[in-house]
Design a protein around this nucleic acid. Structure first.
Length: 572
DNA sequence: TCTACTCACACGTTTGAATGGT
DNA sequence: AACCATTCAAACGTGTGAGTAG
């Protein structure tokens, strides 16, 4: 486990080191963890402690590849944004602990402004360049494996490497839209599916931000050291290593760079490196199994009513009769919500959905609108064993300590701005499961046939992990735990995506799965935090928009995802 | 002139279909 | 027929540098 010592982190000589917008709480002591929990009860705003499920769990999140992130952060991370979308490098990979292994969760990521400033690259450093452009509507990247049981989320790091950034506001291909020359930081949302056994329990909602993953969005790299770091660490950029000598186009150019014995350009940013307590590479044995799901759809507020297909995972439950069944490449959804979505707009959306579906599940459009986050989750499959309870949190009681990612010494306490945080912020939810869960939910998912896992990419394994595999003593091959772990994880993913693959003979039992807390490597731990209510509304609104689609669903006959796919298979 | 941005390009990786062997 | 390993080509991800717009 790697302990993170904020006081010892290097201070980057950049303007605007303080993060005024990112309600971020990465450095709370664990007992300061405060959740967001939404419920239809508890108007008093108090957290009914024993009843809280997700929010009462010791859920912690830690960012993976801290060594790499620190290298970038020490220089000033830049992320390329292009019209067609660019992946992040490093990508966000997080490990989660403390979830209920049996309860299903939706994991979402978005980018939030780091501060109120626009930047410009001046010679060799970033400088402030006026105030920020109007913030773009949030677009949320729902992890393609969502929903999945906590057991699965905790088993291996959750990778968001397929998240793409763009500066094209018109792009509707599932990209997260950012402003160039602005600073952002990733934010993770963990949303618990509500328990159909207990309609009064809408589950909970936690949110985490990662200040050391903050970056400036650029259309072209400004800092050559960042370029060099990317080339040296991103396998896709191998063609540019050796100072580009591998490239035919530049082969004739003489390089002035010093080369090491392997012909690799030496990195020269060491003066700024000050990585505290980072694991040695050889110790870094975490393995991330990437998802094979592709990103291609998103849902913006303006498109809510225009028949945009939501996440197939979700749509399978929204309308099982029309969903297309399992696909080798499920789309996942990015939702775009405009905070300024007004009531009239919402009313129009409600009317549209209700009228066009000829289906009046919601007692009223208003109720549909207020259904919020957990209405979406109600449509998601929920683990049989989940018996979560209702809880309420009084946000006004929560600490709001903010730490600057680049200058942690500047920790300070500050209370939530009155403009952003009402004294007591209670999110009310309406549960939509009105009947007991389908009897087939008595059958645990584990009994389903086990599809074969997709191929493991060498690139998705850290170099150290590869070295470990290559150097593993013979005796270790007798008990190849890493591989079984990988297969176990893939098994879990496959369960979530349907029994469409091949079958393994001995599917592991749930008890065999590693708990996240059992992992050896636990870098920076992020206790859960609360957020300002307006930001809650952003996600709230986002999920409301999905709720509009849910109106097609007959909740009385809601099926689990695996159940649905089983039916699809049987029909074939 | 400067800055921010777009695009085509070359190179490397990933992916899945096709093929052949057991 | 089923399974497995290998091969191959297309698709994709990457930074570069020339060109463009304001």
């Amino acid at each position: 486990m790697v302990m993170y010592l904020p006081e010892e982190r290097p201070v980057l000589d950049l303007p605007y080191q303080m993060n005024h917008l990112a309600n971020n709480y990465g450095y709370y002591p664990q007992d300061c963890k405060e959740p967001i929990c939404r419920t239809q009860h508890g108007l008093n705003g108090r957290m009914n402690s024993p009843e809280a499920e997700l929010t009462s769990l010791p859920v912690h999140v830690s960012l993976q590849d801290r060594e790499l992130w620190d290298k970038f952060s020490n220089i000033g991370t830049e992320m390329l944004i292009t019209k067609s979308g660019r992946r992040m490098f490093p990508s966000c990979k997080v490990t989660v602990t403390g979830m209920n292994p049996k309860v299903k969760y939706v994991v979402i990521m978005d980018m939030v402004p780091f501060d109120n400033h626009k930047y410009k690259w001046s010679k060799d450093r970033w400088e402030g360049n006026g105030s920020t452009d109007p913030h773009l509507p949030n677009r949320f990247f729902i992890h393609p494996d969502s929903p999945a049981p906590g057991e699965k989320w905790m088993q291996y790091p959750i990778s968001f490497h397929k998240l793409k950034l763009t500066n094209n506001t018109l792009n509707s291909n599932g990209l997260v839209v950012l402003h160039s020359m602005h600073k952002y930081q990733p934010r993770l949302h963990i949303v618990q599916s509500p328990d159909p056994c207990n309609p009064h329990n809408p589950g909970g909602y936690l949110r985490f931000t990662f200040p050391e993953a903050a970056f400036i969005a650029v259309t072209a790299y400004q800092n050559q050291e960042i370029t060099k770091l990317k080339i040296d660490n991103n396998p896709f950029a191998k063609g540019f290593r050796d100072n580009g000598l591998n490239r035919k186009r530049f082969r004739d150019n003489d390089s002035q760079e010093t080369q090491d014995s392997d012909g690799q350009a030496k990195q020269d940013f060491t003066p700024n490196e000050h990585v505290v307590g980072q694991p040695q590479k050889d110790e870094d044995v975490d393995v991330t199994v990437s998802s094979s799901v592709d990103c291609s759809r998103f849902l913006s507020s303006s498109e809510v009513a225009s028949s945009v297909t939501p996440n197939p995972f979700i749509s399978a439950f929204i309308n099982p009769s029309t969903a297309g069944g399992p696909s080798p490449h499920q789309n996942h959804t990015i939702l775009s919500l405009n905070n300024s979505l007004n009531n009239s707009h919402l009313n129009r959306l409600d009317s549209f959905v209700l009228q066009n579906n000829g289906f009046n599940f919601f007692p009223s459009p208003r109720e549909a609108r207020s259904s919020s986050l957990h209405s979406l989750c109600a449509a998601l499959p929920v683990a049989q064993s989940s018996c979560v309870q209702t809880s309420t949190v009084d946000l006004s009681r929560l600490p709001s300590q903010i730490s600057s990612p680049l200058n942690p010494q500047q920790h300070h306490h500050h209370s939530s701005p009155a403009s952003q945080t009402p004294g007591r912020s209670i999110i009310q939810l309406q549960p939509y499961f009105r009947t007991p869960p389908h009897p087939s939910r008595q059958c645990p998912d584990m009994e389903l046939p086990l599809p074969l896992p997709p191929k493991l990419s060498r690139m998705q394994l850290p170099e150290s992990a590869l070295r470990n595999l290559e150097m593993t003593p013979v005796s270790d091959y007798v008990n190849p735990r890493p591989l079984t772990d990988i297969l176990n994880r893939i098994h879990f993913r496959a369960l979530a995506s349907g029994p469409s693959g091949k079958v393994l003979q001995n599917p592991p039992q749930p008890e065999q799965y590693l708990r996240g807390s059992d992992r050896e490597l636990r870098p920076q731990i992020y206790p859960a935090v609360h957020e300002y209510i307006d930001q809650q509304f952003t996600l709230n609104s986002m999920l409301n928009s999905q709720t509009e689609h849910r109106s097609q669903m007959d909740y009385a006959n809601a099926k689990s995802l695996t159940e649905y796919y089983c039916e699809q298979q049987t029909r074939k």
